[in-house]
Design a protein around this nucleic acid. Structure first.
Lengths: 219, 219
DNA sequence: GTGTATGAAATCGTATACGATCTAGTGTGA
DNA sequence: TCACACTAGATCGTATACGATTTCATACAC
């Protein structure tokens, strides 16, 4: 069955926002978008409210919607939340990751390592996403997986790459991935895996915090 | 300014669902609700989609909405997610909890202890919510606070009280609260507070898992 | 120049209407 | 009895229309 118009509108806007066509602050005018999509405003309105619920869009009554702003505070809060959620997601997924998946993850990480010589931030970020996708795919708790995706989307809107902003972060990242895979392969205790996965994000978070003269995240 | 009709509809439905007037499986028919509220179906539809985004309602195209089902799996996943989020929320809030708030929390916990003799599950649950409200109020990360509230709402819909289902859980709970407050008062390390707060939920979760002959949560 | 009133344009919020789709009940034939 | 086709009713999905609110530019008073 063809998707409903509201669904189509949602997907289109979601993609344009996360891909960066619509940058933070871009105004989403119901009538304009409706005209572009060849539908009426009602489905567009619904799509925008869904995006609002996901935190990708802010909405003000009688004023309208815009792509969510991308201030530093928001970024740090999102990073901190993701650190917690991704730590848990990795620990919960780990027991279900088989040899094939491990091999796939190692291959992706190797490709990331190869990219370090002639660095390409966009490609590196893509590979990084793929890497974590493999790690989380087996998470038995769908709620947690959903929260991971929400967090990623919010980060995507902000288009702030730690790989370009923090010197040496890309190289560190590859090393941390390798350690994480070792822990998973040896079936290390869940707490240890969670700790390592969380630290993988927290390192970046704390680098930003230090740059802003703020104290490090306590957890 | 008076709330918009869509906002009113949202609040009304949210309350009826979390308070238990509308139980899981209850069908939310657009036309009927619109008639009750004295508005048209458009705002009601919007309210329902918001509730769907929060996981309180399930929606099927061309069929309609109903209050989200409350199966065991869903309950366990929600509990596990909350364990992780609440652990983090407590640890992040702890440094900002002052003497007054500590005293308030202790008073609530004492009231819960008093209730153990002549047990009243409803009142006990209310106090339990108040207790945790005090603990989380200072959380500096609004995203995490939002996730706590979402989790609570999902649990509220299911109306499954560990205090009545698990023998001795209420008494244990009061003791765990006291230990948690001690850790906060002595400014224990964040990791230790997180661990204690998470365990407070995980204990319940694992009791349910054990009852269902399932392995305990790894984290 | 600054602040305020005013009006027009832009945009949203929601009512209404109607076609599309699903569901359930009924009848028919094997 | 069972499977299937069909119909009627219920309900949703979305177009259209219009009033309500906000925004912004302009004009005016001080």
């Amino acid at each position: 069955m063809a998707p409903s118009k509201s669904e189509s509108a949602y997907r289109l806007l979601h993609e344009k926002i996360t891909e960066g066509t619509f940058t933070p602050g871009y105004r989403l005018v119901l009538g304009t978008i409706a005209a572009e999509l060849g539908c009426s405003v009602v489905p567009v309105r619904e799509a925008i409210r869904r995006l609002e619920a996901e935190g990708l869009v802010t909405f003000e009554r009688n004023v309208g919607a815009m792509v969510a702003a991308a201030d530093t505070t928001l970024y740090l809060h999102t990073m901190q939340t993701l650190a917690i959620i991704e730590g848990a997601a990795t620990a919960l997924s780990a027991p279900f990751i088989d040899a094939d998946q491990l091999a796939a993850a190692r291959a992706i990480n190797q490709a990331m390592a190869d990219l370090l010589v002639d660095f390409d931030a966009v490609r590196f970020t893509e590979l990084n996403n793929e890497f974590h996708q493999v790690l989380y795919r087996n998470c038995p708790n769908p709620h947690i997986l959903e929260l991971v995706h929400r967090g990623w989307n919010r980060l995507a809107v902000m288009r702030t790459s730690s790989f370009t902003h923090i010197p040496g972060r890309a190289r560190e990242s590859v090393a941390e991935h390798a350690r994480l895979l070792d822990l998973i392969e040896t079936r290390a205790p869940a707490a240890q895996i969670e700790q390592a996965a969380r630290a993988h994000r927290t390192t970046t978070l704390n680098a930003y915090l230090a740059a802003a003269n703020l104290p490090a995240s306590p957890i």
